[in-house]
Nucleic acid binder design. Structure first.
Lengths: 68, 68
DNA sequence: AGAATATGTAAAGGAAACTTGACAAAACAC
DNA sequence: GTGTTTTGTCAAGTTTCCTTTACATATTCT
C-alpha cells in the first residue's frame, strides 16, 4: 500500500518532526510510514486524514489482494 | 471508534465465520472488531471496505481527538 | 568550508492486532 | 424441550505498530 503523506506534509510546509507532534506520534513513525516500512493503524490513518482534510482513500492506496 | 461491520455483514447474509474466510482473518478477529475490542489494521479496514463496496469512512466512524 | 537543520535507520522494548484451539452461552431451528 | 448453528470469550503465542534513544547521512545556509 502506498501513500501520499510525504507529499501532503511538504505541501503544508511541515517537517517530519512538526507533523509528528501535531499527530502526537514519534518522528520515526512518520518516517516509517512515508518510506513504506509499515502501515499506520486505522486510528492514525484517520488522524492523518483529518489533519490534511482528505479521505483515507485519497491518501492511502490499497492494492486489492496483493498482501502489502 | 465505532463501526458498522456487523450490520453490513448481516445485510449480506453472512455469519462471522464466512466473512472471516472471505477476508482471510480469524473469526475471532471479526468478533472483536464488531464488539469494539480493537480496531482493525488499515489493511484489514481496506479489505472490509472493498468487500462491502463502501468507503472506510462509511464503515468506521472516527471520533476526532478522543483517543479511542 | 563549517554549522545547523532534516531525514534515515537501528536496537530494544511496549502495546495493539491477529492467530489457533477450546469451551460456554446465546440464538435458531425442529 | 433437544439439537444445531452462531457468537462471545479466554489463554497463550506471533507479528505489526509505535516508542525512546542514539547515531549516521543528507540537505541547507551562511
Amino acid at each position: 500500500m502506498k501513500n501520499y503523506v510525504e507529499q501532503l506534509r511538504k505541501e503544508h510546509g511541515l517537517n517530519q518532526d512538526e507533523l509528528a507532534k501535531i499527530l502526537r506520534v514519534s518522528r520515526q513513525t512518520i518516517s516509517s510510514i512515508e518510506n513504506g516500512k509499515y502501515n499506520p493503524s486505522l486510528e492514525l490513518a484517520f488522524a492523518i486524514s483529518d489533519f490534511f482534510q482528505k479521505t483515507i482513500e485519497e491518501i492511502f492506496v490499497y492494492e486489492r489482494g496483493t498482501k502489502k
